[in-house]
């Protein structure tokens, strides 16, 4: 028999809980507030007039392609300041299948050392 009650249960995570339903209600409320605020806006907007033109301090508008902020432009500062990290990472990804196999051997070796030598060390202590 299908009942509504289990659908409204809170999600128990062991040490806390959360309820998606409350969250949904909050999102709907926020959406309504946004719609109401939008309603206060001016209504004289007309399509296909000068109003829709971009205004760049009187400078001419660029081509659409140039106006668009592209994928590699985003987070420029972040990647630039952490360049040493990303350069190292890029260097790691050589795209050479031999290196992929080499990484496998390296991981096997590390796990081997950790599991076997480490265990003997722990045993000695």
């Amino acid at each position: 028999m299908f009942t509504l009650e289990p659908l409204l249960e809170t999600f128990q995570t062991g040490s806390g809980f959360w309820s998606p339903i409350i969250w949904i209600v909050a999102i709907i409320v926020a959406f309504l507030v946004a719609v109401i605020l939008r309603g206060f806006g001016k209504k004289e907007y007309k399509e296909k007039t000068g109003q829709t033109q971009a205004f760049l301090s009187g400078n001419p508008e660029y081509e659409k392609e140039q106006m668009h902020i592209k994928g590699s432009n985003l987070y420029w500062g972040f990647t630039e300041s952490l360049e040493w990290v990303f350069d190292a990472l890029k260097k790691m990804h050589t795209g050479n299948v031999s290196d992929y196999a080499l990484w496998f051997v390296i991981v096997v070796a590390i796990l081997f050392i950790v599991l076997i030598t480490g265990e003997n060390l722990m045993g000695a202590i």
């Binding site: 790691m92 299948v97 990484w103 496998f104 991981v107 096997v108 599991l115 076997i116």
Partner: peptide, 25 residues
């Protein structure tokens, strides 16, 4: 223990665990 190391490493490679993930992208 050898078998465990090999099984974990090989299956993890097939699952795309770093640093054996490079085939995956």
């Amino acid at each position: 223990k050898i078998a465990l190391v090999l099984l974990i490493a090989a299956l993890a490679m097939k699952a795309g665990v770093v640093p054996m993930h490079m085939w995956l992208p």
